[in-house]
Design a protein around this nucleic acid. Structure first.
Length: 493
RNA sequence: GGCGGCAUAGCCAAGUGGCUAAGGCGACGGUCUGCAAAACCGUUAUUCACCGGUUCGAAUCCGGUUGCCGCCUCCA
């Protein structure tokens, strides 16, 4: 069986077949850069990364694009004198809106790297695609779908019969203004309550551009329609985002572009459920609002965040707490230590065959019981891991198999080539998981080696007081010591 | 008001009709160790929010109740 995903459009788990064999075009809704992205945002971005890694694992060529929203969108829509988010944040930071957008964009990329998220092919900025948005708006007006009403160009949803298909909503079920954000004035300007804005003329908006309809700014949904098409073509294989994007954002994206291209906009819509923190929705006022850099400054490793956020199914609400984050880190450490232990064991010659095999020379074909156990475990593991992860990204199940695999291999205590093969299997699946990050050399490596050797000498001389003193000293620096028959190994935690 | 999702151990989380309800973290006991750490072995859910129903059989299907979450033109 091939790869399967739950497609929001059909509501079912479907076999994934790209439009062009061997190639996948994938678009993700990216951050609005008016503040630091929070870990809930990164759950969504990690879904994109996981998809990309899985597809590449299976040999697909992946063209991946994520937008950067750096255009404010909501000045007059709100009751509360609605100040634009970009505008407000810029004023508060004392920066110009674009300076601020670049600042948070940089921060966003920094967080991507910290979380070991692979860079997409392109990160187009909304502010650099205003021309194309204006063109699309013009084209929609020409088709009789866009219409002028007051100082806005609106989209007439009654002209797109499929409106509501993605979110499984019937338009008559929608209670107009239920979100409490529409003014009576706005409602009166619309032909249908669900009509949304393509362009807003507003010479007072901080961000404004010339258009045939006057200086103003574009509707929010336009940017993705336009940029996805520009970078990936008329039909995308995959489009992802948080569940809140399903309606109206993604619904509107397809409504805008399909009448123009005459082709399906997206083959597979994949949405992740929102992250919960401490059992409830994340909010600044509840004090359960986390950013990557915030958690890092508290001493958490960003890879622990990655592990935790990918370890639950993307369609289930995941509960994030510092306790589970700590647990996630322990799991990451265990996995990393397994791999480095196996790689060290691989450097040692294979143990002489125990129970009887290999009485002769190295040329004899007999594998030891340990080698047989390891090779069987590798085969089972690779099969089970792949089956699990292919099944709508069941990472939890895949990780279950990974821990089972480690236990079996640990039990077999392989050395030499078999240990190397076990490590290699882990490195292979890590192309999907992305938690193994290569070890970096540190300046004090040599010094630690010296201390570790000194401790070994002390132990050999049964000077345990000195040995323990060194161990404590190193522990205080985050260095963990492990003694074994093969000698002492250490690692940073 | 309309539409939808979820509820599994101390915590996180697989499992969607049938062998002993994965796995991780934590905790406790053991082997190993100078002591640790790591690893391994064992214990930690007679039961899957609650009530009723269908079935030979239900965590899994159906109905109801409670709680939490999401969408209904800012939101990952």
């Amino acid at each position: 069986m091939g790869i399967r995903f739950k497609n929001t459009m059909s509501g079912r788990v479907e076999e994934f077949v790209p439009l062009d064999e061997g190639k996948v075009r994938m678009y993700h809704c990216g951050p609005t850069v008016y503040t630091y992205a929070h870990i809930g945002n990164f759950r969504s971005f990690l879904l994109g990364d996981l998809l990309r890694r899985l597809l590449e694992f299976h040999g697909y060529e992946v063209e991946q694009v994520m937008n950067i929203t750096d255009v404010g969108h909501m000045t007059v829509d709100t009751h509360d004198a609605g100040e634009d988010k970009m505008e407000k944040a810029a004023r508060e930071s004392g920066k110009s809106p674009m300076e601020m957008a670049r600042f948070y964009e940089e921060a966003f990329f920094g967080d991507l790297d910290a979380l070991n998220i692979k860079r997409a092919m392109a990160y187009p900025r909304a502010s650099e695609h205003i021309e194309e948005m204006i063109e699309l708006t013009g084209a929609l007006i020409e088709k009789g779908i866009g219409y002028q009403s007051g100082d806005a160009i609106l989209y007439d949803i009654s002209k797109f019969p499929g409106y509501g298909q993605l979110s499984h909503k019937r338009l008559e079920d929608l209670q107009a203004g239920a979100g409490g954000r529409l003014t009576d004035e706005m409602m009166a300007a619309k032909r249908n309550p669900g009509d949304f804005r393509l362009w807003k003329t507003d010479p007072n908006h901080v961000l404004q551009w010339d258009s045939p309809w006057g200086r103003g700014y574009p509707g929010w949904h336009l940017e993705c329609s336009v940029m996805a098409r520009k970078y990936l073509g008329d039909t995308l294989d995959i489009h992802t985002g948080g569940e809140d994007n399903i309606f109206p954002h993604h619904e509107s994206e397809r409504a805008q572009i399909e009448p123009i291209t005459g082709k399906p906009f997206v083959r597979y819509w994949i949405h992740n459920r929102h992250l919960m923190c401490e059992g409830t929705k994340m909010s600044k006022s509840l004090g359960n609002f986390y950013t990557v850099r915030g958690l890092v400054s508290e001493g958490f490793d960003p890879i622990a965040i990655r592990y935790l956020l990918i370890s639950g199914h993307y369609q289930a609400s995941l509960n994030f707490t510092k306790e589970t984050l700590k647990g996630a880190w322990e799991s990451v450490v265990r996995i990393r230590q397994f791999v480095s232990r196996m790689e060290e064991a691989a450097a040692r010659p294979a143990a002489a065959a125990g129970g009887g095999s290999d009485g002769g020379g190295a040329s004899s074909a007999g594998a030891t019981a340990s080698e047989q156990a390891v090779d069987a475990a590798i085969e089972t593991f690779m099969k089970q891991f792949t089956e699990s992860i292919d099944d709508d990204l069941n990472v939890s199940k895949a990780l279950g198999h990974l821990f089972d695999f480690m236990r079996e291999v640990n039990r077999a205590e392989p050395t030499g080539a078999a240990a190397g093969r076990a490590a290699e299997a882990m490195r292979r699946v890590d192309r999907v998981l992305g938690i193994l990050k290569a070890e970096e050399a540190h300046e004090d490596d040599a010094e630690i080696d010296t201390l570790v050797r000194e401790r070994e000498d002390a132990r050999a001389g049964r000077d345990f007081a000195r040995a323990d003193q060194i161990r404590d000293e190193l522990a205080a620096r985050g260095i963990v010591i492990e003694d074994s028959k093969e000698g002492t190994r250490w690692y940073r935690k």
